[in-house]
Nucleic acid binder design. Structure first.
Ligand SMILES: [Mn+2]
Ligand SMILES: [Mn+2]
Ligand SMILES: [Zn+2]
Ligand SMILES: [Zn+2]
Lengths: 147, 147
DNA sequence: GTTTAAACGCAACAATATTACAATTAACTA
DNA sequence: TAGTTAATTGTAATATTGTTGCGTTTAAAC
């Protein structure tokens, strides 16, 4: 996480997905990759406050469609966005990892390594995707709590 | 589900939680208990369109605080509400069951019997609650799909 | 350099949610 | 049973989040 990705990586990413390289898009990618947690819509909006809100929404939905980022709602129903690390395809994500929502700092962590256990459902239900959330204290906040 | 609950049950419920028995509250309880799926905020609002929106929000948050209902966001981030069946306490829910969101009819099902498997997290994370969602086709919609 | 589809910015609007305060009423008490 | 009061409701104003339509700009292709 917080791996040092350079601008040409993002430019590459955009080209591969047939998206024009534009300043707003590169900024969104750069911001997201600089964090080790997902970024909430309000955060995005305040940091990118010189980019039009509509443009931001369009960038986010384009990225999501292309499989570049995924959207996850936190416990308060707020949208959070994070880069996909699991080679998601256009229109087909497979980010079935655990999301951890800290009740203290509100951050949403993508725990990419945590695979979901097998779940079986009552007869009749035909599941296509699973999402697992955990909430509680993240490492930083649990340390503070000990003090 | 869709168990025939009578008005005096709800009145009882309200008294037990030190909530005044009012028409809007009884109607919300009655509506929710008549369904076997969670009720979305838009649904609630349109069915209860003669109750003020603010009142509705206040009823919902009061019920949630008291452990009478629980709130679950569907895949689109829309709030859905369902009665608690797991003896939730004031300020402390334990509705850790699976929620199934049908991609066709959009209904949210509380699968109260499905317990979550044990999940272990990376070091440092201190989970307090888990939430598991599945999406796909519900029994009704999967039947239709076969035709 | 020209062309053009894609992307952006702006304005208007829709949906969801919250806050402040005045009016009403369910529940308690005398 | 009437009177009192805190809880609840209604109303208005505002905030936040998200969408749509349309004119302008620009990255990319030729
Ligand atoms: Mn994630
Ligand atoms: Mn439920
Ligand atoms: Zn935290
Ligand atoms: Zn269905």
């Amino acid at each position: 996480m917080a791996q040092t990705l350079h601008n040409f990586h993002f430019e590459d990413l955009l080209t591969r997905h047939h998206l024009k390289k534009t300043a707003p898009r590169l900024r969104v990618l750069s911001m997201m990759s600089s964090r080790n947690t997902a970024t909430s819509q309000p955060d995005l909006e305040s940091v990118m406050n010189d980019i039009d809100r509509v443009t931001l929404y369009r960038i986010l939905s384009a990225f999501e469609e292309k499989g570049i980022i995924h959207k996850v709602f936190d416990l308060n129903g707020t949208a959070n966005y994070a880069l996909c690390t699991s080679n998601c395809d256009e229109g087909h994500h497979h980010d079935e990892h655990l999301h951890f929502n800290c009740t203290n700092c509100k951050n949403v962590y993508c725990l990419n390594d945590m695979q979901l256990p097998a779940i079986n459902l009552p007869a009749g239900f035909e599941p296509q995707a699973f999402t697992l959330y955990a909430s509680g204290l993240c490492p930083k906040c649990s340390k503070k709590a000990v003090k």
